[in-house]
């Protein structure tokens, strides 16, 4: 059953990916004519025409669509106009950076959130709870690009211990990770704390206490397992968002990830880059979604996977 479920999901994913890519094809062509961007304003019409033919933009939209679909099926996304290299190569260079950045930030946030959220829920209403509450609310509310700028101001401009931007050794990862960590951490602490309080008030916890289970066991075995469900869902969504790149944060720090690549690609009307990155990101996100669904079913047997 689980294999047919997996096949079904994969088929759905392929269909959705096709829909996604087709809409991306049309959206990209609606955002503007790339020829205008690559040639000066006073370029002759002949030069424009030549550029258009070189890019294959002179043919009918339907023909372009068929050609494009065939290229994609053979995983050829064409040359990037801006980088003058195959687009997929550029994307595959940026993707690991983004994935590593997102994974590190999210893993740290998830772990910290579970610990802090559980501690807050156990001490609900107390001083620790209020402290965690204020901290997590602040973390969930801070604009990441502003946090980045203030980090630069403090650690790069004033103390000169961290680089302002760029890419290289581990030291270049500190500020981007810190900026991306804040929001998921705050969000998840709230979710874990809320569902944990609910779980601790549930009757099965009372039963566990009544039969003499110790406090630690009740909290971390009986309650936490049930409280994890919403946290896992939200983490899945956050992971899906992060796969698209830490967009603004990557721009702030000049971090060579997929978010910066996409924003640059859209602003420079680089079709190949935009398509290739959408494709790569979509594949990553579908994998994440399937993983979250499977994880969900394994944590909560009541959720029937049909």
């Amino acid at each position: 059953m689980s294999f047919t479920y997996f096949l079904k999901r994969a088929a759905f994913a392929a269909l959705a990916l096709a829909a996604l890519m087709t809409s991306a094809f049309f959206l990209v062509r609606l955002t503007g004519d790339p020829v205008n961007l690559y040639l000066p304003v006073d370029a002759s019409d002949a030069a424009r025409e030549a550029m258009r033919i070189r890019l294959g933009l002179d043919r009918s939209l339907l023909l372009q669509l068929f050609d494009w679909a065939w290229d994609i099926l053979s995983l050829d996304f064409g040359m990037s106009l801006w980088h003058n290299r195959p687009a997929m190569d550029v994307v595959l260079e940026a993707l690991p950076n983004t994935l590593a950045l997102g994974a590190i930030a999210l893993a740290l946030a998830f772990t910290a959130a579970i610990v802090m959220g559980s501690i807050a829920a156990v001490n609900a209403g107390g001083w620790i709870d209020r402290g965690v509450n204020v901290l997590s609310q602040a973390a969930a509310s801070v604009p990441d690009f502003w946090l980045g700028l203030m980090g630069v101001l403090l650690f790069a401009v004033t103390f000169r211990i961290l680089p302002t931007s760029g890419f290289g050794g581990p030291i270049y990862w500190v500020l981007p990770v810190a900026c991306l960590f804040a929001r998921p951490f705050g969000t998840l602490v709230q979710i874990v704390r809320g569902s944990m309080i609910e779980a601790l008030n549930a009757t099965f916890v009372r039963t566990a206490r009544a039969k003499g289970a110790r406090d630690g066991r009740v909290t971390f075995v009986h309650a936490l397992r049930n409280a994890l469900l919403p946290a896992v869902t939200v983490t899945g969504d956050l992971a899906a968002q992060f796969a698209g790149g830490g967009g603004v944060v990557e721009v702030v720090f000049g971090f060579p990830g997929i978010g910066k690549l996409l924003i640059d690609g859209i602003l420079k009307r680089d079709f190949a880059i935009v398509q290739a990155s959408i494709f790569a990101v979509a594949v990553v996100i579908f994998v994440i979604n399937i993983l979250v669904d499977m994880l969900y079913a394994s944590i909560d047997p009541r959720v029937r996977v049909e």
């Binding site: 759905f12 994913a13 959705a16 990916l17 829909a19 996604l20 809409s23 991306a24 969504d237 899906a240 968002q241 796969a243 698209g244 790149g245 967009g247 603004v248 978010g259 996409l262 924003i263 859209i266 959408i278 990101v281 979509a282 996100i285 579908f286 979604n289």
Partner: peptide
């Protein structure tokens, strides 16, 4: 939903 989530929000 999957299709919309397939696009990064920013995109």
């Amino acid at each position: 939903c999957d299709i919309i989530l397939g696009f990064p929000t920013l995109l």
